[in-house]
Design a protein around this nucleic acid. Structure first.
Length: 374
RNA sequence: GGUGGGGUGACCGAGUGGCUAAUGGUAGCAGACUGUAAAUCUGCCGGGCUAACGCCCUACGUAGGUUCGAAUCCUACCCCCACCA
């Protein structure tokens, strides 16, 4: 039911096949984020057409609305969303970080003041497993304690050790719930930007295994890019090669290639859809502000190299017009393009790894992207 | 013809002697966004010079006037609106 095979390796980069209850995922792969059970602005059919193989949902958000029981009664997250392919639910650990000010962390768990209606909600490693069991995604994530990228050693240590203690509790509860059920639990490595903490987190995580996948969390949360790269480089040799590695919350197009080059297999990020809604489109040569005056009256496609509905159908001048008049179609079309852009980047990287041409290709790609042909 | 109200920066609209190059809003322009409290947020927005502090010019219907000082007060004129003839 859960399997990962490495199909090809080039340097640290890998191409693999992840088998999950709802289907296979060819890696490297970008996973669009559908926090509330929807990849914002896109229909399930839209997402399917981007080539996405697996999408996310979020424990915290779906717990608040509509509630995991409602989802369970409707047949689980796949039925609920009509997305009958692999899914992964994030644990709400990131909300411990992003909802700072609305939550209080204790050893037992985290008290959240709901951002929706202000009611007090408590998430514990156990309840997070129960919620995710009800949601029923292929992969459930462990409940972790994320600290900011600039977190000093003592704070990062606290978050890292707590994440390991919580992992034990997640594993226990997940084991109790999983009789006859098909859902994997994936752990998350923390430790901030500190080499020793990251190593201890990775080792502690691995010895609690075996796992069918291991995530790296707490990156792209304010630390400089070279630091993220360094952490990845330090971490990869420690993580078993036969397990898919998931870099959580990353990223922008260049981050995908930088991550793939260092051995990452899976990514997720909200930027594709958020930037899409905010009018920033990713292009091979940098990016473009779709609202910008430069696009006015342009008959060119958004990205001539892209095969998505947006780029093969609509001229730039029309896309800009949609943003100017604030029609929701503009949000959808640019989100669609950005998601396709990242999914395709994963596909291209995979093809080049299989060919043994990833190194040169990604170097050229990054050069072009950073120097902006626009 | 009479009476009353009104003419402010691209637009709407505050201001009714100095703190006013002039509140707000809209439009316009630029930027940010990384396991989604985000169809959001931030900055600029009369012209010129400056890296910046800042300096100069032009501006509140038009033309005069009062005053140390006017978008704000006075006079005339032009235009718009309402009502009455």
């Amino acid at each position: 039911m859960f399997d990962f095979t490495v199909d090809a390796i080039e340097g640290a980069a890998r191409a693999g096949t992840l088998t999950l209850p709802h289907g296979d995922v060819a890696t490297p792969a970008f996973m669009p984020v559908g926090t509330h059970g929807v990849v914002r602005g896109l229909s399930a059919a839209d997402v399917r057409r981007t080539g996405a193989q697996i999408i996310l949902g979020n424990t915290y958000h779906l717990h608040l609305r509509p509630g995991e029981e409602t989802v369970r009664r409707m047949g689980g997250l796949n039925r609920f969303t009509t997305w009958e392919r692999p899914m992964l639910t994030d644990s709400g650990g990131f909300q411990v970080f992003s909802l700072e000010g609305l939550r209080r962390i204790g050893e037992q768990g985290v008290e959240f003041q709901s951002h929706v209606d202000g009611t007090l909600r408590t998430l514990t490693p156990e309840s997070v497993m129960e919620i995710q069991r009800s949601l029923g995604a292929d992969i459930a994530m462990a409940f972790d304690h994320v600290v900011p990228g600039q977190a000093p050693h003592d704070l990062a240590l606290e978050g890292m050790e707590r994440t390991l203690r919580w992992l034990d509790r997640c594993k226990t509860r997940h084991g109790e719930l999983s009789e006859g059920a098909t859902q994997a639990l994936w752990p998350i490595i923390q430790g901030g930007t500190h080499t020793d903490l990251r190593r201890r987190s990775a080792e502690g995580t691995i010895e609690r295994g075996p796992w069918t996948g291991i995530a790296i969390g707490g990156l792209s949360v304010g630390e400089p890019k070279p630091v993220m790269h360094r952490v990845l480089e330090e971490l990869m040799p420690v993580i078993p090669a036969d397990v898919p590695r998931y870099l959580m919350g990353v990223g922008f197009p260049a981050d995908l290639l930088e991550g793939i080059a260092r051995g990452v297999d899976l990514f997720d990020c909200v930027a594709a859809t958020r930037n899409g809604r905010h009018g920033t489109a990713w292009l091979p040569a940098g990016r473009v502000n779709v609202r910008g005056a430069a696009l006015k009256g342009s008959s060119e496609p958004l990205d001539p190299e892209c095969d998505c509905e947006t780029c093969t159908t609509y001229p730039r001048g029309y896309l800009r017009h949609l943003f100017v008049v604030e029609d929701i179609l503009g949000l959808r079309l640019v989100s669609l393009h950005n998601v396709r852009f990242l999914v395709r980047l994963g596909e291209q990287a995979r093809a080049h790894i299989l060919d043994g041409t990833f190194g040169g290709w990604s170097r050229d790609w990054l050069h072009r992207h950073y120097t902006r042909g626009q």
